[in-house]
Design a protein around this nucleic acid. Structure first.
Ligand code: ZN
Ligand code: ZN
Ligand code: ZN
Ligand code: ZN
Lengths: 142, 142
DNA sequence: GCTTGAACCTACAGTGGCTGTAGCTCGTAT
DNA sequence: ATACGAGCTACAGCCACTGTAGGTTCAAGC
């Protein structure tokens, strides 16, 4: 039986994060020691490892919840699992596309600045006026 | 003099967002009508346009605050402005790199799944065990 | 057995950048 | 004069944590 700190170390998680996962029902309520401290077994270790690895791959906690639920029904077709992963891939690709457009625009405005005074800094000019931009970028956000 | 809703429409901002910017000191406290409603002039319009466009280019509100402060000293060298933009570019590039690694890993695991049962879904196998991954991905988060 | 101190506990506030809601008041067109 | 859209304040909620305060428990060393 592992104390929460040991579980945290084994999975590269912070202690508070584990308690947070419990609070939102992503980790089960574990057994307790006589004094009331959490004690974890191998099942919980595996579950937390799954959660953490999914997080490293960028899945949302909501998607992870879905994936965990699905993996409790081993007989079912994995179509839904694949759909969750596909959707996530698309979102990642969309974010890359947006960031790539940003990168191009930023690089251009930085390259155009002749490093003079603030009064005629190219970067500030572009920020003041979207007409100076080549790409469209409607929604602020990541 | 513009009411807040008009300013919002002109800049593609939500009314609450403008009030939020005022609350955190990014927009100045505007004049008020007799009845106490906010009234904006062209200076505020320009400032909000600058903020919004900077947000579209991914700058944080903290960076935007800095850029706005800097642009109040037109005589100074724009080195600091350029540094803010450079730093942001590097962060964007770092995020692209991370997302690109994610994309590769996700695409691989999706491609390897033979779309069978949950019990032997390749996606779940990879999520359970980072050893199945090719890349390293230490920190969760975008 | 006793003391120490690291690790644990709960509860709550804060992060960034908004967004939404409730319950009012104001402005303006007819 | 009245209707109603637009404005007002204050506060809660989103995501995924992270940090803090103030107290309790555990395990090792003596
Ligand atoms: Zn410059
Ligand atoms: Zn632009
Ligand atoms: Zn599958
Ligand atoms: Zn991995």
């Amino acid at each position: 039986m592992l104390a929460i700190g040991t579980l945290a170390k084994r999975t590269g998680t912070k202690v508070q994060t584990i308690r947070y996962y419990e609070q939102i029902g992503l980790m089960p309520e574990p057994g307790r020691s006589e004094g009331g401290q959490r004690r974890y077994g191998p099942l919980e270790l595996d579950r937390l490892a799954f959660i953490r690895h999914s997080r490293q791959l960028g899945f949302s906690l909501e998607s992870i919840r879905e994936l965990l639920d699905l993996s409790d029904s081993p007989e079912r077709s994995c179509a839904q699992v694949d759909a969750v992963a596909q959707k996530h891939l698309h979102e990642v690709e969309a974010r890359i596309a947006r960031l790539e457009a940003l990168r191009v625009e930023l690089k251009r405005m930085i390259g155009e600045c002749r490093a003079d005074r603030v009064a005629n800094c190219r970067i500030l000019e572009v920020l003041r006026d979207h007409e100076e931009c080549l790409s469209d970028h409607d929604r602020p956000g990541s």
